[in-house]
Design a protein around this nucleic acid. Sequence first.
DNA 1: ACAATAAATGCACTTCCTTTGCATTGATTA
DNA 2: TAATCAATGCAAAGGAAGTGCATTTATTGT
Lengths: 138, 138
Amino acid sequence: MKTIEELLESKGIRVTAMRLLIYKFLTEKQVAVRLSDIENSFDKADRTTLYRTIKTFEEKDIVHQIDDGTGITKYALCEKGCNCEIETDLHLHFHCNNCNETVCLTEHKIPQIKVPDGFVSENVNLVVKGICDKCSGQ
Amino acid sequence: MKTIEELLESKGIRVTAMRLLIYKFLTEKQVAVRLSDIENSFDKADRTTLYRTIKTFEEKDIVHQIDDGTGITKYALCEKGCNCEIETDLHLHFHCNNCNETVCLTEHKIPQIKVPDGFVSENVNLVVKGICDKCSGQ
DNA sequence: ACAATAAATGCACTTCCTTTGCATTGATTA
DNA sequence: TAATCAATGCAAAGGAAGTGCATTTATTGT
Ligand SMILES: [Mn+2]
Ligand SMILES: [Mn+2]
Ligand SMILES: [Zn+2]
Ligand SMILES: [Zn+2]
């Protein structure tokens, strides 16, 4: 079991107190978070630092960005071996219209999508909206 | 063949000069447009009027909104018989990473997406990104 | 045709999120 | 220890979405 410090270093990211805190926050949350979610969870956290930290994490494939249609970009930790760049690896995301939370359905890959001749598919974003398991009451 | 005036009236929308212009602009464009695209295509057009016009069109199912992941909402005319509210009718959208344009692939419906037990799917947004037919050069 | 009424438009302003510039602090290396 | 580079914090800019209100334009009833 790798420590967080080791993980960050293995990705070429310097370990800082802030980065450890943000990473820890992401592991504890089971849902995709907005920048403001992180901001509100810390007393003295600067938006800019959060922003740049999450961008660093994104570049190094530690988190991936999620556009769930709310207009606010969210982020979630990549699973072990999550190759977000590879189309065939892409999982789908679920946005709950009730509790407004967005989760990664890591086990559910996006099916192969046929596009017309002449079009080249490089990437697919699929968001399902509805009622999540917590809110559907079973 | 219905005139634009007749179409608008049949949907319960009053005909105005601005609305005709905007509708015409949408028919001529073969791609999804941003509010600012419309704004820039007219000399003396107020953002608010465009905004409210497009919202009116949206309510009356004349256009549908497209979230292609660029962070800017786009709009495109609904095809004849496009029931945007019905999940099974939803077509997919293609965003070109080269020319940055987004098109409706009206003929290509979104396949049935399986979600885990407890989750209820009400709506699906699917955007394919890649290279469009114009840009792929064939 | 005219007055009364309602809808559409234009202007100004607000809010929210994202992004950048720059000075400062902190860590790393020679 | 000095020089160098990365991370942080503050401030401000930018872009898009949305709202309030006064004005113009269209519709309706007399
Ligand atoms: Mn995910
Ligand atoms: Mn469409
Ligand atoms: Zn929920
Ligand atoms: Zn293209």
